[in-house]
Structure formats: C-alpha cells, structure tokens
C-alpha cells in the first residue's frame, strides 16, 4: 500500500535550520532516508522551501488570481513529504514516528487511492 507522509512543523525553526546549512540534509534526515531505502519502502521524498517563497493560485469568476504566499493561518507549515510503499497503515505510522520532524512537528499519514488498479 502507498502512503503519503506529510510533514508539518513550525516555520521559524525550519528557516533557522535552513539558513545554517541550506541544501544540506540534517544527519537525522539523511539516516532516515537511508533506512527507508534499505527497508525497500521509499518511493519519493522532498523538502519544500519556506512558505515565503510560495505562491497560491485560484480561479474565481473565470479569472486567475495569484497571491503571494500560502494561506498561512496555522503555525505549523507543510514542510516536506515522503511517499512510501509498505504493507499496512500500522507500518506507515511506525515510519512516521521515526521521521525526525515527528519529535517537534506533526507527520500526517495519508493512504493513497489506488486509481491505476495496480
């Protein structure tokens, strides 16, 4: 079964981390990646740039509006994701618990609809 792990964490902390070592994965995340690959669970994963670089798009009355930034009402921002393939939701939750951001943020586990019939 495929699951999306959505990583939400408080943005200021993330930005601070990013400035110090932009583009470098923390040792925790590097190890987590390796473990996912070794266990054969990893399909994809990426870290997103901070929401200051984001744009939001919506179409209203046939007109496209582009806004700066996301809807940033919440303290915790969506900061990255993993797409994994594991046996069941229990295993997916276990992987989410191992995700370094689970220590201070929230990792949401979402099963993926199987629309291709495979």
């Amino acid at each position: 079964m495929k699951f999306m792990l959505l990583i939400h964490s408080t943005e200021p902390a993330v930005i601070e981390n990013t400035r110090a070592d932009a583009g470098v994965m923390s040792p925790e995340y590097a190890a987590y990646n390796d473990a996912l690959i070794k266990a054969g669970a990893m399909l994809a994963g990426d870290r997103l740039q901070p929401t200051t670089t984001a744009a939001s798009v919506r179409v209203r009355d046939g007109k496209t509006e582009v806004l700066d930034g996301p809807y940033a009402e919440t303290k915790e921002q969506f900061g990255g994701y993993y797409l994994i393939d594991v046996a069941d939701i229990d295993t997916a939750v276990q992987w989410a618990a191992r995700c370094p951001s689970a220590q201070f943020g929230t990792v949401e586990v979402r099963p993926i609809w199987n629309t291709r019939g495979d």
Binding site: E28, A31, Y32, D34, A35, Q94, R98
Partner: peptide, 9 residues
C-alpha cells in the same frame, strides 16, 4: 550506525 539512526523512534 546510519541505519540505526534512521530507524530510531
């Protein structure tokens, strides 16, 4: 050790 780090909860 890298794998152990990645698997720790």
């Amino acid at each position: 050790m890298t794998l152990a780090v990645g698997l720790a909860t």
